[in-house]
Design a protein around this nucleic acid. Structure first.
Length: 316
DNA sequence: CGCTTTTGACCAGCGC
DNA sequence: GCGCTGGTCAAAAGCG
């Protein structure tokens, strides 16, 4: 890979800029569970902050047929980078033809693993062989992956409130990390959105939240005018331009927001301004969370995770 | 009682 | 084919 930023573990620039989705970034090396050497990701999947997925989807105009952003589309046929690539978003097959219908939301086909109940435990070889046959036939149908967004959040709380209700359905130990990864599913009926939460083992103050899929319902806490949507409604960022996505993110998102907002600032805005009014039953929890957010403006660590060319917060 | 969390088992995909 | 790992299931336990 041609890379003019080899010195920076975070940044991988792809010079083949004819497709937006070639703007690849890797995860910081210090984030376990996302080995940057094997999991490349699009920067658009890797926004810093704690916006919920739908907000982002809207903000990025990430409708399934969006021809503009082409966010995180990676051809499943020719990537196969790893089994866990955080940004390996589906979009099987059609990518050669470009900008259209990029991120397909093929959840109907997808859930082959959601699943065969393993009812009636092992009735013998017949059952087993049946299952094996079924599995073989199913193996050929590749499960399209939902688009994913990952967030780094500096917080002492693993499971951050985002307005949706989640049910934890699994937890796994992360290789080489003392911190487990938790798996959550949206509790809303028929909503297939999932999220994973894990903590960096090198900087335990950083929580990585990965959203997968799109909510098919409104946020239980209808976040009117919340900070996240305000932040992401920047016309300059989301208006179609001839500028590459990476550049736009670079110039607009980071230049506008990061220098003036630490991640904690953003989160605190969200929680302070919106959620307590909308989620009275969660108020106590919110307040507890707010208290646990650190109020310092230690931006250094996050800066370290950013590409070296990104604008930096000015020291006073 | 209903919902959520915990946790061991299971499954699928990938690399060797 | 085998082993490893990530992801998911589902029974049991916990909780309000």
């Amino acid at each position: 890979m041609a890379n003019e930023n080899n010195h920076n573990p975070f940044y991988q620039h792809n010079h083949h800029d004819d497709e937006l989705n070639n703007s690849n970034f890797s995860f910081p090396q210090n984030f376990q569970g996302f080995d940057p050497s094997s999991h490349s990701t699009n920067f658009t999947d890797y926004l810093h902050g704690s916006m919920d997925y739908n907000t982002l989807s809207k903000a990025f105009d990430l409708s399934c047929s969006s021809s503009e952003m082409n966010i995180s589309s990676i051809d499943d046929n020719n990537t196969k980078k790893s089994s866990v690539g955080i940004s390996e978003t589906l979009n099987s097959s059609e990518s050669s033809s470009s900008n259209e219908a990029v991120i397909q939301e093929d959840s109907t086909k997808s859930n082959k693993k959601d699943k065969q109940p393993k009812l009636g435990c092992e009735d013998g070889d017949d059952e087993k062989s049946k299952k094996e046959k079924e599995n073989k036939t199913k193996k050929k149908e590749k499960k399209p992956k939902e688009p994913r967004f990952a967030f780094l959040t500096k917080s002492e709380i693993d499971h951050l409130e985002d307005g949706y209700r989640w049910r934890k359905y699994g937890q796994k130990a992360v290789k080489n990390s003392p911190y487990p990864r938790s798996y959550y599913r949206c509790t809303s009926q028929k909503c297939i959105v999932k999220k994973r939460v894990e903590r960096s083992y090198q900087d335990p103050t950083i929580v990585m939240t990965t959203y997968e899929g799109q909510h098919n319902h409104h946020c239980p806490a209808t976040l009117r005018g919340n900070a996240s949507s305000m932040l992401f409604s920047s016309p300059s960022l989301f208006a179609p331009t001839s500028m590459g996505l990476e550049q736009r993110l670079h110039q607009d998102f980071l230049a506008q927001f990061l220098p003036s907002y630490t991640q904690n600032d953003i989160q605190q805005q969200m929680f302070h301004q919106n959620l307590p009014q909308i989620l009275p039953h969660h108020q106590q929890q919110q307040q507890q969370q707010q208290q646990q957010f650190q109020h310092h403006h230690d931006y250094g660590l996050l800066q370290d995770l950013l590409p070296s060319s990104f604008p930096r917060k000015q020291e006073p």
